[in-house]
Design a protein around this nucleic acid. Structure first.
Length: 653
RNA sequence: GGCGGCGUAACUCAGUUGGUAGAGUACCCGGUUCAUACCCGGCCUGUCACCUGUUCGAGUCAGGUCGCCGCUACCA
């Protein structure tokens, strides 16, 4: 371990379920975890920050089927694809050290070993799982899956049925788990403890069904064909397999297990505070030190959900307002342990008051005065006054309080402290009136010290802001020309005396003030046409016989020229190379969808043996093929464009 | 139904072990001009959801009422 390291620190987010793109709620949890990880690194801890995706299960299997791809292709797309999970974390500056996917080979193999171990030690046993069965569908359902007591697929009656399944002896650990919850601070915030104990443990914990035969997209139970490991073991053990538990891929278990904290949403507190410790107890493994269940973000006072169409897209907001502003807002505004109400108005108000006015403007006015009065160079010398001591004392107090709150995951309160310092610095400017000091040669030494104090306050605040807004902190440090050492947690000693020297530059505003009304309107515009209903033509009920079909002569054609037809707002006139050596003319009513010049040179598809037909007095020999659909009631058309490598005249069949 | 939580200024929220309510924002007024129409100071509003009790005294404790939300397990 290096000399300045304080020790190891292991922190995790949940592994998210990639059945759809992630939303602001996932971003919230991940940003909080990232901030904590950065904070610990800043303090000198050797941090391991894990996040990832939980990729198995019925729902993914179903979604993939709907999309006509394999489950693996489906999750690959959501995780690796454009604007997928990895893209989002990159955009949001998430500094994870490791990313686990439950479909990773090493994880799958490890889960099989873990399952077997628990089977061998008797904590997993084969039993019967009682549920509901729909005969016509040959489907097995749980009570909660039923829709009004009927089969969710076909709506018919279901009957009691039993299925073979493996169970974990959760009940065996009920007492130990209850003790863990009630008598330690394993689970926080404390209010979650009662919910768990009263709802689940006191009524009597039932054994947990840990395998399935009703779907196949999961880790196979390697000693019993047809069974796949159900979510619990597969998903929860990610926190350990990612460190090398039961696999050779990694070797960090000794250093980082048990985890310092699992951040989880309140909806999965049960799994992490009851099932997870019980499974670890079964294998006689150390328990994580803490599980923290954070609150949810609502939107405009309502729960976010896809069906309500009020899911907030972190991509959109990051791109529009900047990643740091969004990260800051999420942690500044909402107490981490309870729910928060996300509104666009609040986001913008926070950006304006805290980031533009208080922080950005302070940096701006300070660097501007340095430039104006000293050419940007604050040399040794100066003259202190009693007032300066207040700043110094406050800075020390702020650091202490900040640390205390961060260690309790109270991000918003920690940030309050930072703003106490920034507010004080702004007030200090009013108290010292640098613009008056600058008027007389006699008061220049005092002015010098005043500016040094301001620079020092800003530097201090920038250190504290680093975990929340890494890019902004760096911008500030660069403007103040702060050395690498002076950006660190260890450099939190306040120094604005005669020996201090600064070289600062004036930059562009860190956070431009937003015109709230304008931005609201723009956001409205951007999020409205989110997903207009797609409609396609009904399929033809009538069959066409093969010979008739074969008579249609489809050819690749290249656009030599294309222009609007006079007096027609619909027609485009195409001059085409059809490979015969003579040009072919086709008219097409697609002027609404394309500008003539953008089509020249494209390779299209035409049917060429339709009888010629006159349109607006011009002859059209064939028809160009397009794909049509409607979107939100609006007709859409796309010409069939094929690879330009296909020669003119090539027959399509 | 059961369990848990919440209901405090126009808005977002603080209020440790009970002692006649606070912060930030917004509004308004004044100051200032280094700065991103910014900054500084001041002002304003509250039967602390409702009722009843314990107490010398309750936003803070107990009981009840109303409203909102979460959990109620094998969905992830």
């Amino acid at each position: 371990m290096c000399e300045k390291c304080k020790g190891n620190y292991y922190i995790t987010t949940p592994i998210y379920y990639p059945s759809a793109n992630l939303h602001i709620g996932h971003a919230y949890c991940t940003v909080a975890t990232d901030t904590m990880a950065r904070y610990k690194r800043l303090q000198g801890y050797n941090v391991k920050f894990l996040t990832g995706t939980d990729e198995h299960g019925q729902k993914i299997e179903d979604k993939a089927k709907e999309a006509g791809v394999t489950p693996q292709q489906f999750v690959d797309n959501i995780v690796l694809g454009e604007k997928g999970v990895l893209d989002l974390w990159k955009l949001m500056n998430i500094s994870y050290d490791r990313f686990i996917r439950t479909t990773d080979d090493y994880h799958v193999a490890a889960i099989q070993k873990i399952f077997k171990k628990m089977y061998d030690n008797g904590d997993i046993y084969k039993g019967k799982y009682t549920g509901k069965y729909c005969k016509p569908c040959e489907s097995f359902w749980t009570e909660s899956q039923l829709v009004e007591g009927k089969c969710p697929d076909c709506g018919r009656d279901v009957q009691d049925a039993q299925e073979e399944a493996y169970f974990f002896r959760l009940s065996k650990y009920a007492d130990r788990v209850q003790d863990l919850l009630e008598n330690t601070d394993f689970l926080e915030p404390r209010s979650r403890v009662n919910e768990m104990v009263n709802n689940f443990i006191k009524p009597g914990l039932e054994d947990l069904c840990v395998s399935r035969t009703s779907f196949t997209w999961g880790v196979p139970v390697d000693f019993d064909e047809g069974h796949v490991v159900y979510v619990w073991i597969d998903a929860l053990f990610n926190y350990m397999t990612a460190l090398g538990f039961e696999n050779d891929k990694y070797d960090d278990l000794a250093a980082f297990w048990p985890a310092d904290v699992h951040f989880v949403g309140k909806e999965i507190v049960r799994f992490h505070s009851i099932i997870w410790p019980a499974m670890l107890m079964s294998l006689d493994l150390p328990l994580p030190k803490k599980v923290y269940g954070h609150g949810w973000l609502n939107f405009n006072g309502e729960k976010m959900s896809k069906s309500r169409g009020n899911v907030v897209d972190p991509y959109l907001l990051s791109e529009r307002f900047g990643v740091d502003a969004l990260r800051f807002f999420l942690l500044r505004t909402f107490p981490f342990g309870s729910d928060g109400n996300f509104t666009n108005e609040l986001l913008m108000a926070t950006i304006n008051t805290d980031l533009a006015n208080t922080l950005g403007n302070l940096v701006s006015r300070t660097t501007a005065m340095n430039q104006k009065y000293f050419g940007g160079s604050l040399n040794a010398g100066g003259e202190s006054a009693e007032l300066d001591g207040e700043l110094k004392a406050l800075a020390a107090e702020v650091f202490a309080n900040y640390e205390k709150q961060m260690d309790k995951f109270q991000f918003s309160i920690a940030l309050n402290e930072v703003f106490r310092l920034l507010d004080r610095a702004n007030k200090y400017i009013d108290e010292t009136t640098p613009w008056i000091l600058a008027k007389s040669e006699e008061t220049m030494p005092r002015l010098l010290t005043v500016m040094k104090n301001l620079c020092e306050c800003i530097r201090m605040a920038a250190i504290l802001i680093t975990p929340f807004m890494p890019e902004t902190a760096e911008k500030i440090f660069n403007q103040l020309n702060v050395s690498a050492e002076a950006r660190s947690w260890n450099a939190r000693c306040y120094c604005a005396d005669e020996s201090a020297v600064w070289n600062t530059t004036v930059g562009t505003p860190l956070f431009p003030r937003l015109d709230v009304e304008k931005e609201l309107a723009a956001l409205e515009e951007l999020s409205k046409p989110a997903k207009p209903a797609l409609e396609i033509e009904p399929y033809s009920e009538e069959n066409v016989d093969f010979d008739t079909f074969c008579k249609s002569d489809f050819r690749a054609v290249k656009v030599i020229d294309c222009k609007n037809v006079k007096k027609s707002d619909k027609l485009l006139q195409f001059t085409l190379d059809d490979g015969t050596g003579t040009e072919r003319q086709i008219l097409s009513g697609i002027a609404k969808f394309y500008k003539p010049e953008e089509l020249i040179g494209k390779t299209l598809v035409a049917i060429v043996n339709l009888p010629p037909r006159k349109m607006m007095g011009r002859e059209s020999c064939g028809m160009l093929l397009s794909a049509i659909h409607s979107e939100g009631g609006e007709e859409k058309l796309n010409l069939i464009m094929v690879d330009d490598a296909i020669p003119a005249g090539a027959k399509l069949c």
